[in-house]
């Protein structure tokens, strides 16, 4: 999978965005004495997005020239995505720093700004792919998939990596986000299949779509099934299991479940890149 740097970069951006949203929501709803529970996850926001940005440079043929990606900001969607992601990273640096230093003044506003920048970076990253020359990608399922991943990971990570003792109302907020994210990913997958199956009067587009649909369903349906099991069924099962609990402890099993869901999101992202790069144009 030659697009592995972009798979990891996009997932890192969405994970960091989800954590920023989660930390901001946490701060609005939790008792001040409980803030320490969110601290490790909030501190992880900047390292995650920084690693993602470094990994994205592995995609370039000339990584040392990466700064040139800012030069066509007025026209290029890719330049815009680079700028927004860099802005998100800068805000994340400050926000994670605030959590690390235990500084609370202004942290809520900074968290909101970081979350908005993260969402902007995720959306900008998604619209890169919705171009008319890529019929498999030129559909709303790609932005839905990107946003669904951010919401899923942002809800699931705090739900399973924080020890909840009381304040289960907030736990259920994150579990609701987990279910919402998994539902959005399921909808995105169905939307993708609908897009690949759509009728079009353009013979070239019809041939391309039919080719990737046949490739996906005839030989790789198991991969798609594993993806849906990991990002839709498993998170929903976790949410159902934890919902009635009054006390939830961090366990290695919970960490393994989160890792499995992250693996699932990577499997889905790999499918996305395969669909667009499977056939060379002309």
């Amino acid at each position: 999978m030659k697009e592995w740097p972009l798979i990891l970069f996009t997932l890192a951006t969405q994970l960091a965005c989800g954590l920023a949203l989660a930390a901001t929501v946490f701060e609005t709803r939790a008792r001040p004495t409980d803030a320490v529970l969110m601290r490790p996850l909030a501190m992880a926001i900047f390292p995650v997005i920084a690693c993602g940005l470094l990994l994205s440079m592995a995609h370039l043929g000339r990584p040392l020239m990466a700064w040139r990606a800012l030069l066509n900001l007025g026209q290029s969607r890719l330049s815009l995505e680079v700028v927004l992601t860099a802005l998100f990273a800068l805000l994340a640096l400050a926000y994670s720093g605030f959590w690390w230093m235990g500084r609370t003044e202004g942290r809520l506003v900074l968290g909101a700004a970081t979350s908005v920048a993260g969402l902007a970076a995720v959306v900008a990253g998604a619209v890169l792919y919705t171009v008319p020359t890529q019929p498999a990608w030129n559909s709303g399922w790609v932005p839905a998939s990107f946003l669904g991943t951010a919401v899923l990971l942002g809800g699931l990570a705090p739900a399973v990596l924080i020890s909840w003792r009381g304040n289960t109302g907030l736990l259920r907020v994150f579990l609701s986000a987990t279910v919402a994210g998994s539902l959005l990913l399921l909808i995105a997958a169905l939307w993708m299949m609908t897009n690949l199956s759509r009728r079009t009067y353009d013979p070239y587009t019809a041939t391309r779509l039919a080719g990737v649909l046949q490739w996906l369903t005839s030989r790789n349906s198991w991969w798609l099934g594993c993806y849906l099991a990991l990002v839709s069924v498993l998170p929903a099962a976790v949410a159902v299991r934890l919902w009635p609990q009054e006390r939830v402890e961090i366990t290695p099993f919970a960490g393994a479940m989160l890792a499995a869901v992250v693996l699932g999101t990577a499997m889905g992202r790999a499918v996305m890149y395969w669909l667009g790069t499977r056939y060379e144009p002309f």
Partner: peptide, 16 residues
């Protein structure tokens, strides 16, 4: 000399 090898153009061009 200006190309950074991001390959975005290979996705954008309908003719490869």
């Amino acid at each position: 000399e200006k190309c950074i090898g991001c390959r975005y153009c290979t996705w954008l061009c309908p003719y490869g």
